[in-house]
């Protein structure tokens, strides 16, 4: 096995190990690793900053959203109030008009009833006078006696009374 037979190469192997390993150590320690750590640190900072920015934007968006929602809710309640006011106004108007109309109807009805009553009274009076005259005329034709108006009228009244 050359590993155990070539003992004379041990010194050379270890010498070159120390030289190359030492060189690599110094280069990595002084040049590569600080650079790497800077790169990674900067990236981490950038990521953190971006996350922080995103969080701020999210907060702003949330605020805007809540403002918008509040505006919508306000507008909705305002609209509802306007609708309610209009409804109330219309209902009041309708009630007043209804009241005026029913008053007019009542008045017209009363007037008409009065007119009817008057007409009826006139008609009854006319019929009465006609009946009295008819009775006078009939009496004079039948028995040839003139019945005074007062008697005839009383007789007609009695007869009418009797009929109810």
């Amino acid at each position: 096995m050359p590993q155990l037979e070539q003992i004379h190469t041990f010194l050379s192997q270890i010498f070159w190990l120390v030289v190359t390993f030492g060189l690599l150590y110094v280069v990595l320690w002084k040049a590569a690793l600080p650079r790497m750590s800077t790169i990674l640190l900067e990236r981490q900072q950038r990521i953190d900053e971006d996350i922080r920015k995103a969080e701020t934007f999210k907060q702003e968006a949330d605020e805007a959203m809540s403002v918008y929602e509040k505006a919508v809710a306000d507008a909705r309640s305002e609209a509802q109030a306007v609708i309610r006011a209009a409804n109330d106004k219309l209902a009041a108007e309708a009630a007043t008009r209804q009241e005026a109309l029913s008053a007019k109807i009542k008045r017209d009805t009363a007037e008409a009833e009065e007119r009817i009553g008057k007409a009826r009274a006139e008609a009854v009076e006319t019929i009465h006078t006609v009946a009295v005259q008819a009775a006078q005329a009939a009496t004079s034709r039948l028995i040839g006696a003139d019945v005074p108006a007062d008697e005839a009228k009383a007789a007609v009244d009695a007869a009418l009374q009797g009929r109810g």
């Binding site: 190469t9 070159w16 190990l17 190359t20 990595l28």
Partner: peptide
């Protein structure tokens, strides 16, 4: 002292060069 540059040392140098 024999510190000859050998095939072993060459590979060490190549390894270091590649890592760098």
């Amino acid at each position: 002292n024999d510190i000859s540059f050998t095939n072993s040392a060459l590979m060490m140098v190549i390894a270091v060069a590649l890592i760098v």
